[in-house]
């Protein structure tokens, strides 16, 4: 894929996350690069550390050791202003985490107006454009509790986009959805991928991984077991553990 030639956006070196003084190794020496424009899909059995890995990328989990470099800045260093960097790393959660006390448009404009100092008009204009892209412009004044799960997740995605991030992190974005709503969220993510957005996605949607990913990582026991193009991972898996996993989920 062409993404291979692009510059490295996030560089992860020997990342470890230990609990109970090292008795539990949620992450055990992860090293990988995420390049601009890449759609990285992380798969693996539950408890394999894939969510922990994704959440480490914007320091929602503090790694025990190892470094993460984002746009040339070591974000694990104590002197780094992580809040500034998080503005450029959007995140979408399994449970949407929309702010229930704010309307949809307020959910989307809160961060841009407070953090990027955008004017209310500009922020709302941008928010409405994004809402139109996910076909929810008529729900701008609604509150999160009035929306379906699929709609909430689409809003969560555009809320992250309002900050114009350089990368979007997806933590099992469709796992909490009713089956008939999974498609609408995946469609939005596919459009994003086509537009060249850099994405790191933890998911159980193998169809999505196969179709959209530029690279797939298979994790187990806190380690990267296998890494490659969707073809290499899904069509010709060589690793035994990967084969067992795929046999269960496909």
């Amino acid at each position: 894929m062409s993404a291979d030639n692009n510059e490295v956006l996030i560089s992860v070196k020997d990342l470890c996350k230990h609990y109970n003084m090292g008795a539990i190794k949620a992450l055990d020496g992860i090293t990988t690069d995420i390049r601009k424009g890449e759609v990285l899909v992380i798969i693996g059995p539950s408890g394999s550390g894939k969510s922990t890995f994704l959440r480490s990328l914007n320091l929602l989990e503090r790694p025990t050791s190892g470094t993460i470099t984002f746009e040339g800045i070591d974000i694990t260093s104590p002197s780094t202003d992580i809040n500034k960097l998080r503005q450029k790393m959007g995140m979408v959660f399994q449970h949407f985490n929309l702010f229930p006390h704010l309307s949809i448009i307020e959910n989307m404009t809160l961060a841009p107006t407070k953090l990027l100092k955008m004017s209310k008009e500009d922020a709302e204009k941008k928010a409405r454009e994004l809402l139109a892209k996910v076909a929810l412009e008529d729900r701008a004044k609604a509150y999160p509790s009035q929306l379906s799960g699929g709609q909430k997740q689409r809003i969560a995605i555009v809320r992250a986009l309002c900050m114009s991030p350089d990368v979007l992190l997806f933590d099992e974005p469709t796992s909490a959805l009713d089956p008939e709503m999974v498609g609408e969220v995946l469609d939005v993510m596919k459009d994003l991928a086509k537009s060249g957005m850099t994405m790191a996605v933890v998911t159980h949607e193998m169809g999505f991984a196969r179709e959209v990913a530029t690279r797939v990582i298979f994790m187990d026991d806190g380690k990267i077991i296998e890494e490659g193009t969707p073809d290499e991972i899904f069509t010709n898996p060589t690793n035994e553990r990967l084969k067992t996993f795929l046999a269960k989920v496909l």
């Binding site: 914007n58 929602l60 809040n83 500034k84 998080r86 503005q87 790393m89 959007g90 995140m91 959660f93 449970h95 985490n97 929309l98 702010f99 809160l110 961060a111 407070k114 953090l115 809320r159 992250a160 900050m163």
Partner: peptide, 13 residues
């Protein structure tokens, strides 16, 4: 819910 907190922090607050 802690997710509210994480959502806020993930936006850069």
């Amino acid at each position: 819910d802690n997710g509210q907190f994480e959502a806020g922090r993930s936006l850069g607050f």
